[in-house]
Write a protein that binds this DNA or RNA. Structure first.
Lengths: 334, 334
DNA sequence: AAAGACTTCCAAAACGTTTTGGAAGAAAGG
DNA sequence: CCTTTCTTCCAAAACGTTTTGGAAGTCTTT
């Protein structure tokens, strides 16, 4: 390329990168040559010297066969992808199968592949690999729904306390007084926050918080189903349920149906997330809508800001929205 | 690292890469040093000389906000991700926003980022960028649902003729004789194949193929809704519809409901894809299940085989499966 | 003891860029 | 005409590996 244009490689580099110590005529000549040869600078070589790859690592633990139902991870990914594209960054998706998990941690992956930073979602709060990544305090990292502090760390989440509040307030406004909760697992920050919102709102409206009405549904359809059976069996006074995820509601729906009940007539349910299925199921789910796309979009923006050393707000909290559909109705018990 | 271990960089490289011209004692010493320093070889530098990045480019046109409903792209991605992980390849996701689309084509992206090969899905058959990638006949490339031939090209698809046949045969067996079809757009190979299967099966059972009963729903919910209105309005004799995608069925369902009909009582519908929503909608969709995960999985395997120069079957065709659920029933018109 | 065959190591080149520190020539100022 | 200051270019170093082509030492064979 340099020979073809009749100049040194230095000049090619400086011409193409817009430095001003190159004659406009020469620049033209070089650009013409570049076009003729369909020349693309080799990013590997460039990155080797600049130490920048313009690549974002993305670690999404729930990229797997099962995750397709609630396409949460996918929507987040779409947001990341769009913003990264706009900012001219590429995305490297890190898988981590069981085999590799042992030998190569995420931080090794990031280091080896030289990504400029990483977005992490879906990991349990206690995940050892999470610690590893975030303790290397010089590696820019944005966590989704996982609290963290550090100069190179970012945190994107939604207001789960507010979300849970809206859900429970909606049920209370419909006249419900005995409201159970199906929660996820305790290794998720969002579970604790949603529980707190549930409790706070109950108490604010003069309803005693009863721990025995909170069940663990481990964020799965199966878990939601089992939890709902528990509720129906042991707590017949319950007329409404707040679930920490729509997927668990889908399971709960099955439990209600099998026990001869009907949603929302015999029991009202409000979910969380607003997954795609929520507006097509029967009944359509009343739920708290999280803007997953926006979470990804903001995460990408935050990460790039972090990488490029701009001052940032380390924590971004998005608002949720109550979507009233068909799975809730006024309480009919006196 | 080399100094720390007291040997040359050459020896470090050869020791860590398992060459046999290094003394076992030295190897141990080097491995110990590597562990102590938490040394990871720089993939950029390595790739610069080996010309291999162990990275797969993935170009999924429908990675966007709208694509979340039918998470087809996502399931394919999961399959790719899993197999790539097993084979120790990483994945680079290529976004291509409108702005970039003009200046940088996919093949430029692939070349610049030095991926070893690419998997392409969701592009229209006529896409100019597609031509570009596939005409560079030395770049390993696997296309999903896009036919192509070439020594470095692979093609993964499902048997769409068979799938459409199963759908239509199911309707015929239920006694339906007037069967319309809602097809996608003509820039998708699968549309043509499914149409062919529809037509063939009709004729095989002595039912005349009527082109005016085939509508374009452009693979969208909205398109499916409009197509269904057309059918209801202008072809009251139709008692069953075969749709080339579940998403279009979702739209069609709305049209039927708004016109006062009922699925499957007044009209039977069978869809295609078996998206997640299909088994939760009301009624649950009878549909042709495509194993999207497997498509991605196979595509990744095929691409790696191509990259590593193994002999391959350039075309992989997966079978589909008829999922009978609630959107079809025996024909009630005489 | 010399020659040959192994074993074990390394220096140097190469990969394709960016960056650094000038150099050569032209223009400007005295 | 001699300095000084721009303008425009380039040679060389650097990035961190792998690969190539030996070199030194050791062991075997004659």
């Amino acid at each position: 390329m340099a020979k073809y244009a009749g100049v040194s490689v230095t000049t090619v580099s400086r011409a193409l990168n817009g430095y001003d110590d190159v004659n406009e005529g020469t620049r033209q000549k070089i650009q013409k040559a570049a076009k003729e040869l369909n020349y693309r600078p080799n990013v590997l070589a460039r990155s080797l010297v600049t130490k920048k790859t313009r690549t974002l690592g993305v670690i999404l633990s729930d990229i797997n066969r099962a995750g397709a139902k609630d396409a949460m991870a996918f929507e987040i990914l779409c947001g990341i992808n769009d913003r990264a594209g706009e900012l001219d960054y590429e995305i490297m998706l890190f898988s981590t199968n069981a085999k590799k998990q042992m030998s190569k941690s995420y931080s090794d992956l990031c280091k080896e592949r030289n990504v400029d930073g990483a977005i992490i979602s879906g990991l349990r709060v206690q995940d050892p690999y999470l610690q590893e990544v975030t303790y290397d305090s010089n590696f820019p990292c944005v966590l989704i729904d996982i609290p963290a502090e550090g100069s190179c760390l970012g945190h994107v989440t939604t207001d789960n306390v507010e979300g849970a509040s809206m859900a429970v307030r909606h049920l209370i406004e419909q006249g419900h007084r005995h409201i159970a909760m199906i929660n996820g697992h305790n290794d998720a920050a969002v579970s604790l926050e949603r529980l707190s919102g549930y409790r706070k709102t109950l108490e604010k409206h003069g309803i005693a918080y009863r721990p025995e009405l909170v069940f663990n549904g481990s964020f799965s359809e199966e878990g939601g189903c089992e939890a709902m059976f528990e509720i129906l069996l042991h707590h017949p006074e319950v007329t409404a349920v707040f679930s920490a995820s729509d997927l668990m509601v889908l399971g709960a729906l099955r439990a209600v149906e099998r026990s001869g009940g009907k949603v929302p007539e015999t029991i009202s349910i409000v979910g969380y997330d607003d997954i795609a299925i929520a507006s097509y199921s029967s009944p359509k789910l009343t739920t708290i809508r999280q803007n997953k796309y926006e979470m990804g979009y903001q995460a990408a923006q935050l990460l790039v800001d972090l990488i490029e050393g701009r001052p940032v707000n380390h924590k971004i909290m998005l608002h949720n929205e109550l979507m009233i559909r068909e799975s809730t109705s006024p309480c009919e018990k006196p």
